[in-house]
Each structure stands twice: as C-alpha cells, then as structure tokens.
C-alpha cells in the first residue's frame, strides 16, 4: 500500500468514526440545536424611571442596577422539546445572578430552559482583568521589565452566577400593569406609565437592555425579593414589559451588566 493510499484510508476511518460518534451520542452539537421562543417578558430593576440604561447612560440613582425578570414562553421549543407556557426567569442582586425556572418543567424541559437561560438571561462568567499599571518609585530602565507597583494585581467584575432554582412563577399581564412572583421569594408589581394619552402607555423602541423591540414603560409599586443570596426592597423604580421573539439565530440583547 502506498503512503497516499494509507493516509486516505486513515482519513476515511476517522470520518466513519465521526459519523459513528454522532450516531451513538444521539445528539448534535448542543450549540447547533435549533430553538425558538416567543412570548412576554416582564422585567423591573432598581433604576429610576425611565431606566437610564435604556438610553446608554450609567444606572441611576445608584451605581448598580439589580433586576428581576421572567420570559413567559407562550410558544417555544429547544430542538424537539416543547416549552409552551413555561417561564424562564431570574434575579440579579448584589451577590450575583440566580436563575429561577418554572417548577412545572420535566427533566428534558429543565435542560432546555437552562441552556436557553444562559443564552438570553445572562452570562455565566465575567472576565477578570489585570489592574491598570501603577508605576513604582524607581527610575525605569530599558533593560529591565516594567513592574506593577500596585498591590492589587487583578480585578473581577463580580457578577456571580449562583445556579438554578425551580420555583412556581406567576406572571400576570394586564392592560394597566404587570406582576411577577417567584413563589414565596418575592417579585414586583408595576403600573404602566401613561402620559397625556390615557389610552396607551408610554413605550420605548430600540431598547438595548432587553431583547424586546417595543417596551412598555412601567413604575413599580413594590420590588421586593429575598433568598439566601440576595435581598432587595425598593419601590417606584423602572419596569419594562414587552413581546419577545428569540431563536438560535437571534438571541437578542443581554440584560444590563458591566461590560467586560
């Protein structure tokens, strides 16, 4: 057998192995699985009304923006797994981000929702960065490497992912407002904001913070939540309500988080 034939045969064997591996595992690449969800997003945060983050500004009146949200999937699937009427939510507080998923989901739906949560609701890991270089007192010498004189070597934009919990989620949407409840942990209730036209609430389009093309602006009556990680208690803060339509080709914008 010539060297070329031997190489071609090896290549063919590897190709066969590849096909076999796919067949045995019974799954395609996870990130290539098609998914599609559409429904209603209800969200509120600790920012002033209207949320400054919507307009490319830093959070206000605080330096932070903590939030609660839920994607009510009225119709959706992850590959063959149906997700109709399930809710994919979360809370982002001072300690980190907890995924709050619909307790009614079966095991396959739970895996599907966890995967989608990572894609639409938050990043698992923020990036650590080196601390900016601070010169020491010694005169730099070209033949000697520069040295960080700060005792702080790195910085961590500390948005920790705290895992998932499965809870009953209630999400009520009316013509005048919205209410979201995560079991006995809490939630928020918001009234839509009406301007001089009492028949239609104020909306914002091209909203970059949440993946909804048109956002109805709301103001919270209460924003109260507590678990072993995060405790939040605010009122009169910003809320958004809108229709989402997301898929593996259009995962949409991420919620407001510190840029890496």
């Amino acid at each position: 057998m010539t060297s070329q034939k031997r190489d071609l045969r090896t290549a063919r064997t590897i190709l066969e192995l590849l096909v076999a591996a796919l067949a045995i595992s019974g799954v395609a690449l996870a990130q290539q699985k098609p998914w599609h969800i559409k429904g209603q997003l209800s969200e509120a945060c600790t920012c002033n009304v209207p949320c400054t983050c919507n307009f490319g500004e830093r959070p206000s009146p605080y330096e932070y923006c903590y939030a609660m949200w839920s994607y009510w999937v009225q119709e959706g699937n992850w590959d063959q797994v149906k997700l109709n009427d399930l809710r994919i939510g979360g809370v982002d507080g001072p300690v980190g981000i907890l995924g709050l998923l619909d307790a009614r989901a079966d095991p396959a739906q739970r895996t599907a929702m966890e995967n989608i949560w990572h894609l639409v609701s938050g990043r698992l890991l923020c990036l650590m960065r080196l601390w900016p270089f601070k010169a020491g007192g010694a005169e730099p010498r070209p033949n000697r490497p520069a040295r960080q004189s700060s005792i702080i070597r790195t910085r961590y934009a500390d948005r920790q992912f705290l895992g998932f919990e499965y809870v009953p989620i209630e999400q009520v949407i009316t013509e005048r407002g919205t209410r979201l409840t995560f079991s006995d942990k809490g939630g928020f209730e918001a009234n839509y904001i009406f301007g001089r036209d009492p028949t239609r609430p104020v909306t914002v389009t091209n909203n970059v913070s949440w993946p909804i093309p048109i956002s109805i602006k709301g103001k919270t009556i209460f924003f109260k939540y507590g678990d072993k990680y995060n405790q939040l208690d605010y009122q009169g803060t910003n809320a958004n309500q809108g229709h989402f339509d997301l898929s593996h080709t259009e995962a949409g914008a991420l919620p407001m988080m510190p840029p890496n």
Binding site: L22, S25, A30, N115, Q160, F161, L162, G163
Partner: peptide
C-alpha cells in the same frame, strides 16, 4: 466533547465559579 451538554453539571459549575 460537545456531544453532551451541561446536564447535571450546571450547579456543580456554578459552585466552582462561586
């Protein structure tokens, strides 16, 4: 490597990250 997803490992991962 990619054939499996994070099934069952998500909370172990979250714990390691935490």
């Amino acid at each position: 490597l990619a054939a499996g997803s994070l099934r069952g490992d998500t909370n172990r991962l979250a714990e390691a990250v935490r």
